[in-house]
Amino acid sequence: METARTDERTKLREIIARYHGEKSSLIAILQDIQEAYNYLPVAILKMVGQEMDIPLMRVYEVATFYNAFSLTPRGKNVVEVCAGTACHVKGAINLLENLERELEIKCGETTKDETFTLEQVRCLGCCSLAPVVRIDGNIHAYLTQQQIPDILRNYRK
């Protein structure tokens, strides 16, 4: 347990060092932590405060203000339904509701087996392909409800 914590601290120090410990790089540091852990673990955030000499409250403010940060573990596959205007007028809401039914979770939640996290994203800028859903960074274009079960099956493998 103790060594695990020491390892975590070493890992965090490496991340902080990338930004020369600059307090103004807090957002970038949190992004790197999320990249490493897939979310922002509370224990690590507390370490950030200590290591960077920033009040924990400031760290918490930033971590909860920005959409990109998640304080809860996310699934192996992040499913992002584009909620841009072009996708909206082409029925993105129906895709979202379909995914909620298929995955049996609400938007923002993670499936019990931690395979999928369902999220909405503000415009991916692929408006010519609307409506789109991004799964693990792969864009699924002109998506219809009919295609959803097959697509999810591929990610379940």
């Binding site: 509370v42 918490y60 203000f65």
Partner: peptide, 24 residues
């Protein structure tokens, strides 16, 4: 800096970090 503003928009709240840690 024991308390602050967390979250944003209509969810904005005042309190200690993680709604629990008031160690500061």
């Amino acid at each position: 800096n024991a308390i602050g503003l967390s979250h944003r928009g209509p969810s904005k709240t005042v309190g200690p970090p993680f709604d629990e840690d008031s160690s500061a």
